[in-house]
Design a protein around this nucleic acid. Structure first.
Lengths: 349, 349
DNA sequence: GTCGTTCTCTACATCGTTGCAGGACAACGA
DNA sequence: TCGTTGTCCTGCAACGATGTAGAGAACGAC
């Protein structure tokens, strides 16, 4: 239907369009790029030829010529984790508003894949990279000194000279813990720690947890802190299982993300412990699942859409050569919100 | 650290490498592409120059020259829906095994965006497209006559002359319904229908549902069929809410996907109806969430990783010019599995 | 000693687009 | 009448890589 007769438009170039329209190839280019000095008549003739031939700009050629690709990369651990899926969704939407497409790279939380992201193989493929590292830490500072626009998501601790968009890890975690304290819990388990880590979400959220305990005058009991390397439902379940098996007594759980929290709910249910009556649970991330689980999950909403918007905007600015006025890397901290749901609300109604 | 002194490798080209190594630019190209006739000495000299300058191939230039980009696009409704997130994860992994990267496009289930996917704007950007359409149907056949490698996911009904990788929608739905019948349910609600649709997952799953009812000698009651346009948790909740509000009696729900099923569980819980005792629930997709919800959800596993692998493989073959022997478009139907969990298992233990 | 083969490297054209410079012509004010 | 400015269009040279063709050396076989 579209192209005259032949619907499979072979490989039409500007050359062909120019010949059909009886103009120079450059004029075709001008029409496509909306150059202002064009007779309406010429423009119409070129557009007619474009339609007739079913011409499509060769993006590869344009990319080469312009040095820009109109694409950005988003590097995350795994889309399988709901938080990152929802984040990707938000980033894609934000990018679309800026006319950008999004290439997604999964690092699988593997260090070598994370290093590879920074290695520059994406340099000529995308205009910038939004990167949520998991395994890179304080010792890897120099890896972040890259030659392409880069925005980091997640932790904000290590100053890499790179733009950051982050969430209120410490304060959010403290708020989550304080909420548990406020409803009268005193033995609050923390699920998802990464022993030995000093930067990164796990360390920060643990820090917030400890701060809140201290502020409440509650003791910090290491036995209540359960490690979980990957923050999946399965690892959350195992971690809580471990606490229960070990006979550790607790009346609340602060899970470092919602996936862990859902694993926690699952484990508690298996042990026939009622939530929130016997054990209250709070998560972090506020994924959609948490508003529908049984019981629904109280969680810290880290401002996901906001984070995505700001990250894309930073990238666009950097790519356009706009630097923050003071020359220092930007640091954006999205505000969090505590969403209280059934997992911390004794059913009264 | 990497590049001599300067870590920000400006814009090094093969030319620069060639000059430093004292060879022709083509030899540099040969080294990079592993051409066999190279003196080890020459090769070493070039590689040293590459390291010294921190040279990275300009992918845009290579793309233009070769007409291939090493990228494929995956077009799905929304990553926010767990099924598509998990599918994207699987596709990215499969693509990686073939050395391909994945660009993700979200159609948001909007018809115009779906048409746009087929319009060809991606032609020169990727080597092929994996497309899971939601709104395009029988009337849009000619839109699928595109000039780039395309693999469709999802429904298989309308014969577009395009390769399809699909799941056993009808049989899976029938199996789900039959399972409910087998545990003694007779008033089985179906959640997620798209009234008026004749192709597409909703129509097929409804068809399977009706087949199973008929096979069991149960009447088909339209009052038990609840429409839900988008298959989200929220719409599932609303649909079931609607049934309950209308006073429709039912002892089981077959939700057309797991998100709807989780919305269903949520609604039932709010009405204090016990699952599975009063109402048994089965979903479709077998997302990870379903193995952790309370109760865990019985679901049809559509062979997601298999679907992803086959789709990528088809695309790779097509891009390489390999066509199925008979010239007809390929049709792959992944086998399904019924995963029985608590939502249909009266607790006996 | 000539021929054919195998090995190693190079020169050149080319992929399809856009930036730059400039030509031709009309309209304008001085 | 002569510049000057504005409008409309064109030609050429890039962007940075790779495919093709072929040159020159080294080798063995006749």
């Amino acid at each position: 239907m579209t192209a005259s007769g032949l619907s499979r438009s072979g490989n039409v170039t500007m050359h062909d369009v120019a010949r059909v329209a009886g103009v120079s190839i450059k004029t075709v280019s001008n029409v496509i790029n909306g150059y202002q000095y064009l007779r309406p008549e010429t423009k119409a003739r070129v557009e007619a030829a474009i339609d007739e031939l079913g011409y499509q700009v060769n993006v590869a050629a344009r990319n080469l010529r312009q040095g820009r690709t109109g694409m950005i990369a988003l590097a995350v651990p795994e889309l399988r984790l709901p938080y990152f899926a929802e984040l990707a969704d938000s980033v894609i939407q934000a990018a679309e508003r800026s006319g950008l497409r999004v290439l997604i790279e999964q690092t699988g939380g593997r260090r070598d894949r994370e290093v590879e992201i920074l290695s520059g193989s994406l340099r000529h493929l995308v205009d910038g990279v939004i990167f949520s590292p998991l395994r890179l830490g304080d010792d890897d500072r120099e890896l972040f000194d890259v030659s392409f626009p880069l925005v980091l998501l997640g932790e904000s601790i290590f100053d890499t000279g790179v733009d950051h968009v982050t969430m209120s890890n410490v304060q959010g975690a403290a708020a989550a813990t304080a909420h548990l304290v406020a409803i009268g819990r005193t033995r609050i388990a923390a699920v998802g720690s990464h022993p030995g880590e000093t930067v990164g979400s796990a360390a920060l959220r643990l820090q917030g947890y400890r701060q809140a305990l201290e502020a409440a005058g509650l003791p910090y009991d290491p036995a209540l802190v359960a490690p979980a390397d990957a923050w999946h439902r399965s690892t959350g379940e195992q971690a809580v299982q471990g606490l229960l098996d070990a006979g550790v007594a607790f009346d609340a759980v602060f899970a470092f993300n919602d996936a862990l929290a859902h694993g926690t709910l699952h484990a508690l249910h298996a042990w026939q412990l009622s939530v929130p009556e016997q054990v209250a649970v709070v998560g972090f991330d506020d994924i959609e699942e948490s508003a529908y689980s049984t019981p629904t999950l109280t969680s810290i909403a880290p401002g996901r859409q906001d984070i995505a918007d700001r990250a894309v905007q930073l990238l666009v600015d950097r790519a356009a050569g706009v630097a923050p006025s003071d020359g220092a890397p930007a640091l954006v901290v999205a505000p969090y919100e505590l969403h209280v749901r059934q997992s911390t609300t004794p059913i009264v109604a």
